[in-house]
């Protein structure tokens, strides 16, 4: 028992938790989005009920156009929730296999889509992924999304005045890149940055990726397309 407790070193726990923290943060954000869609659906249904009760009470008939508009709003929210659940499912399946061939712009867009609400809480907009062509890559999609999210979060303090972060996916030879653009040149690292940079370095190492983020107005991840993971 004592041995087991000793084995739970703080750094070991931190490593285990880093991925789970990302998974947890994104799941919480997804849950919030679904709850919002449910809340609007609930209020639309409630309003239909209110209007029916008011019509019964007053003896007047219901306006069919009004009911049709409310029904349309309910259907729109169901579509919205369905899209969120599809993204949640894609995200959940990103941990199915340790190595997978994936479309890089699709994985990048999924990471951005999941993080958009969180970025919005800092009044930051994550633009759509720009990509010239379709590139597949052999990687661990979950770790790649986790790395990308840590880098985007580190970019929050370096955004330009328009508060929009652009992400571009490109290919040069056998190498693919994800570039986070429209940033200010980075300042000296704080203690918090250093802890986050350690985590970034560990994930980049796991993915055999090179990350360039210092003394520049952009952040770039370079990965070999036919990557052999460690």
């Amino acid at each position: 028992m004592n041995g087991q407790i000793e084995n739970l070193s703080i750094s070991g726990l931190q490593d285990q938790y880093a991925g789970l923290q990302y998974f947890g943060a994104m799941s919480a954000s997804i849950a919030h989005e679904i709850k919002n869609a449910l809340a609007i659906t609930n209020e639309n249904a409630g309003l239909m009920e209110d209007l029916s009760l008011m019509a019964i009470k007053s003896g007047q008939s219901l306006e069919p156009e009004r009911i049709a508009r409310l029904a349309k709003k309910v259907m729109d929210q169901i579509k919205r929730a369905d899209n969120i659940v599809k993204k949640m499912s894609q995200f959940a399946h990103s941990v199915d296999e340790p190595v997978k061939v994936v479309n890089l712009s699709e994985v990048t867009e999924l990471a951005l889509e999941l993080g958009r609400r969180s970025a919005a809480s800092f009044s930051i907009t994550l633009g759509p992924v720009k990509c010239d062509g379709s590139f597949s890559i052999q990687t661990n999609p979950f770790i790649l999304m986790n790395l990308l999210w840590l880098l985007i979060k580190s970019a929050f303090r370096r955004v330009n005045s328009d508060k929009t972060i652009e992400v571009v996916v490109s290919k040069e030879g056998s190498k693919v890149s994800i570039a986070i653009l429209n940033l200010l040149k980075n300042q000296l690292d704080s203690e918090q940055d250093k802890a986050q940079n350690d985590q970034i370095a560990k994930l980049a190492d796991l993915l055999n990726a090179d990350v360039y983020m210092n003394n520049t107005d952009k952040i770039v991840i370079n990965i070999m397309q036919n990557n052999k993971l460690k």
Binding site: A39, I40, E43, L47, D50
Partner: peptide, 12 residues
């Protein structure tokens, strides 16, 4: 921040 939620809630 959900304007549709605001609209319907306010009406109800």
């Amino acid at each position: 921040d959900e304007t549709e939620f605001l609209e319907i809630m306010a009406e109800r």
